[in-house]
């Protein structure tokens, strides 16, 4: 069942914001890295894992979440952070390594924390899952109906932490939803070469929890599946595993030559770009072009403002590196 109209419009706006953010970051990231690509150069150093194409997973799930719900995410987390409501200006400033960033430049792109909306991410595969179980247990013990959602990639389903966390969550019957963004690639290794079964959602049965699979990167179907799981979690029904077929429109990281990827794969996925697909779907449902353009303009301005804020912010004082090692 498609989400109601205002929810769908809000989801389109978030998808657009997320995509515009990645496109703006991509441009900024490449500054200083051309013609010779060197990861250390330019205003944004280090690895950069862009989420373009995976927006429906984040937006469709987080549309059901409140600020007091917890989200743990991955190394590829910008879309999830945005969908969870992480402060956009501070997030951009963090990625630029600036003083006004979420953590004053200490964490950067792979280590975004926003306590205001209970969001965090890390660069270690599958390691957000245990903390999500803990957040869910804390909610349960505290008598709240808040939930936790742990986003992972399909590669993480082959980590010990995946299996341990599913079991623990089921044993404790805590309000947590595990969301697999299956983009079919673990860096250069195809899912079929690394994973013994076709559908990771089938693994839910091993731990006595419901598992569902959403095909085709379809945000309305994701919204429906996540709604059911989150409602069950809030009502005390325990954990759920959701697997979403999504696509990675960029390399594993910026600078990835992607020689391992079959030729034409990315081009084929681009013809099914979820942002374009959803725009068409909303238009067909009667949303006017003027309204869509108005949303796009507003979201693009928010992103432009955030990057401008990030660029204008000062670098942190070197001595601040020694702060906050301990609380």
């Amino acid at each position: 069942m498609p989400a109601e109209c205002d929810v769908r419009i809000r989801m389109y706006a978030q998808m657009a914001r997320s995509r515009y953010f990645e496109e703006a970051i991509k441009v900024a990231y490449l500054e200083g890295k051309q013609p010779l690509f060197n990861m250390a150069k330019g205003p944004i150093p280090g690895e950069m894992h862009l989420s373009s194409g995976q927006e429906p997973c984040a937006v469709g799930v987080c549309a059901h979440l409140r600020p007091d719900d917890t989200v743990t995410a991955t190394h590829r987390a910008h879309h999830i952070a945005i969908a969870k409501g992480v402060a956009l200006n501070a997030m951009a400033a963090e990625i630029f390594g600036k003083r006004d960033g979420l953590s004053g430049g200490r964490g950067g792109h792979m280590h975004l924390f926003d306590a205001g909306v209970n969001f965090c991410c890390s660069g270690i595969v599958a390691q957000g899952m245990g903390p999500a179980v803990g957040a869910a247990l804390a909610a349960k013990l505290g008598g709240s109906d808040a939930v936790a959602v742990s986003f992972i990639g399909e590669g993480a389903a082959n980590q010990g932490a995946f299996h341990e966390s599913l079991n623990l969550a089921a044993v404790w019957k805590v309000p947590v939803v595990f969301v697999i963004e299956d983009n079919a690639w673990g860096i250069s290794v195809a899912k079929r070469a690394s994973t013994a079964i076709e559908r990771n959602s089938d693994r839910a049965a091993s731990y006595g929890m419901p598992g569902s699979f959403v095909a085709d990167n379809d945000i309305d179907a994701i919204y429906a599946a996540a709604g059911e799981a989150i409602q069950r979690a809030r009502a005390g029904g325990g954990p759920t595993l959701i697997e979403i077929e999504t696509w990675r429109l960029e390399g594993h990281f910026m600078g990835d030559a992607e020689g391992y990827r079959p030729s034409g794969e990315v081009a084929a996925l681009q013809t099914r770009d979820p942002l374009i697909v959803y725009r068409q779907r909303l238009a067909a449902a009667g949303v006017s072009t003027a309204e869509l353009e108005s949303i796009e303009g507003r979201e693009l301005r928010a992103v432009t403002d955030a990057l401008q804020f990030a660029r204008k912010s000062d670098y942190p004082a070197a001595e601040s590196a020694f702060d906050t090692v301990f609380s």
Partner: peptide, 13 residues
């Protein structure tokens, strides 16, 4: 390197 987790920002690292 001092006893500080390696920070992200070049201004810190």
């Amino acid at each position: 390197h001092p006893d500080v987790p390696i920070p992200y920002s070049p201004a810190l690292e």
